[in-house]
Amino acid sequence: MANVTETQAPAYVAPRKGLLSRVNSRAVVMTLYLLFLLLPIYWLLNMSLKTNAEILGDFTLWPKDLTLANYATILSDPAWYMGYVNSLTYVVLNTVISLSVALPAAYAFSRYRFLGDKHLFFWLLTNRMAPPAVFALPFFQLYSSVGLFDTHIAVALAHCLFNVPLAVWILEGFMRGVPKEIDETAYIDGYSFGSFFVKIFMPLIASGIGVAAFFCFMFSWVELLLSRTLTTVDAKPIAAIMTRTQGASGIDWGVLAAAGILTIVPGALVIYFVRNYIAKGFALGRV
């Protein structure tokens, strides 16, 4: 063959003549797809920077008179910004609880065989898959009867339903990649289980813990049905407050859009750091 060197490259780069059109068609597909993804988000951002008069008055593709008033409304009104505080409170609580119980359990699943391990692992999965709609009413009654209704901890515990199994599965996926010899060597060196786990093992799976934390945070952040059912005033999440923008003069579209944009910010801030693990996290540590 004349072009032996060409075959070193993956199939899609060669032959040379088709290279330009190939790369271009790939770029075109990706551009179109990303455009499709970003256009609705751009539209929300666009609206959040407009006055209500402009939103309803003339149809403009970008804000004619740029205003930050909508954001100022949210950030200065406790009824609004407390929603973010509430959401963040129960989300962080949930992430901490989920991770701290999931870490030892994931270690047990990845290292040991014990009575009923497979059943337990499967049962956890069914809870990750459980429809929140089934649990909404029982949760409401359960947390009302123990006096936790409308508290952050109630929502945090309720979200453990799907986040603990998620964290266990993700962490187990990362832990199985760590060779068992490390554990054995550490025990021979005289480490107790606790000090080995904290000092040696946790740094080894630091990225796994980060990914699990990210996914717990995210799934708790995006969930609304349970958090709305379990709260009325004191722990009401931002997502539920958003449904109340309907005032006497109709819906305040600008503020609604600004509130929506602000809910995207936490995810967007950290997404870059976990970009290579998103598939792994969604696939529960597999892939």
Partner: peptide
């Protein structure tokens, strides 16, 4: 591409609803 594609996955579900509710409205 990874970061941009992940964006919709991280939006609270009711905000996803709101985005499309607004996006599909004939007036705005």
């Amino acid at each position: 591409c990874l970061v941009m594609m992940s964006l919709p996955l991280l939006i609270p579900w009711n905000v996803v609803g709101t985005i499309w509710q607004i996006f599909g409205r004939v007036d705005i």
